[in-house]
Design a protein around this nucleic acid. Structure first.
Lengths: 203, 203
DNA sequence: ACCTGAACACCGTTCAAGT
DNA sequence: ACCTGAACACCGTTCAAGT
């Protein structure tokens, strides 16, 4: 069992890291996080193997929260509206937290905790997508894995103008959503990603 | 007028930087670029104010090449096909060059050379979009500025799986293109970006 | 006028010394 | 068992000394 001060320092570090990462993104320094937590720089490496593992810990929490939002939306009456709210929640999380997008690209998929959280999110996305597809609101050739990848589309498209037009992601979320509707569906040139593709992506 | 060895070193640096950036992305070290060019580290700072300006120089060349592609496609018979080829060319450039996406986000928009190249690209995109819109192939509420922002959408959506599925961006390019068609068009919640938004985005 | 390489301030990470 | 801060190898950048 952990020593009392160690458990406290770990909690302080996670809290400080979450705050600094959301404000300044992935390139915030370890020194800054340690200072905010009130511990020495070296203490960070007593609790986490390196910066990447610390970032992964925060990233997991956010993935879990987003998955929970998706699971709750499965009980929403309108399958299309449920999917829209799920993707909106993901975009709002990314606007709120600068590091979330960056972590999704940078964090290692070999980390078991990240994989577990990703899988849970994928299951929620697949269930929401299946419901919307079966109801005819979403085109037949789109999968839950597609939706997972599309979660960061709107904010990334709008990112270059995020400084001057902070709400622009809403425009591109709706443009992407229109692409998911059956009305304009044309054949897609390559197969959807599989679970295997996600686990095999070394990065 | 520049000294002979200075002009030669500048050319060598740009060539080395372009190669290293396309292979390793923005986080390649100045030391590595200088070594590849066969000059001392300090020489880089005789020709460029810093790493950002060196990256901007490479970025400008690529923006110019893409703009030229767009201008040539204005003479294509089919307006929709011209737009598709323009967006495909942009995606292929991003797959070929790891640094291009990153530079678009990181490079300062205050640099006059970057601004000039961006404006040229924006004009080409606007002309291609107007033609496709007037022909009825593209929905009425989409602008050339939208298309500029959408140029990196497909590759960024597919980025997490680029290692295992290098052609996946084609799927999302077509999904985004389906969103641009009039058939599935629903009202977009916020106004398109303006030229002012692009110049005001401080980064 | 330009090139060079030592020097500086930073970063993430390691580790011997403490408690 | 954990915390600490000095030390290390890196990075981008500066600049005095050369030619």
């Amino acid at each position: 069992m952990p020593r009392a001060d160690a458990a406290r320092n770990r909690a302080l570090l996670i809290e400080a890291a979450a705050a600094e990462l959301s404000e300044h993104g992935l390139d915030v320094s370890i020194a800054r996080i340690a200072a905010r937590a009130g511990v020495a720089k070296g203490t960070v490496f007593n609790h986490f193997a390196g910066k990447e593992e610390l970032v992964a810990a925060i990233f997991c929490e956010q993935l879990g929260a987003l998955a929970a939002t998706g699971e709750a939306l499965l009980h929403h009456a309108d399958p299309w509206e449920a999917l829209v709210r799920f993707m909106t929640a993901a975009a709002e999380l990314q606007v709120r937290d600068r590091s979330f997008c960056e972590a999704g690209a940078a964090t290692s998929r070999t980390d078991p905790a990240v994989r577990a959280a990703s899988d849970r999110l994928a299951r929620a996305a697949e269930a929401l997508t299946a419901r919307a597809r079966d109801s005819g609101a979403v085109r037949a050739d789109v999968t839950g894995h597609d939706v997972v990848l599309l979660l960061s589309a709107a904010t990334q498209i709008a990112a270059p103008l995020a400084g001057s037009r902070s709400d622009l992601w809403r425009r591109y979320l709706h443009l992407v959503l229109d692409g998911l509707r059956p009305a304009a569906a044309h054949d897609l040139p390559v197969a959807p990603p599989t679970h295997r593709d996600f686990t095999a992506a070394a990065g």
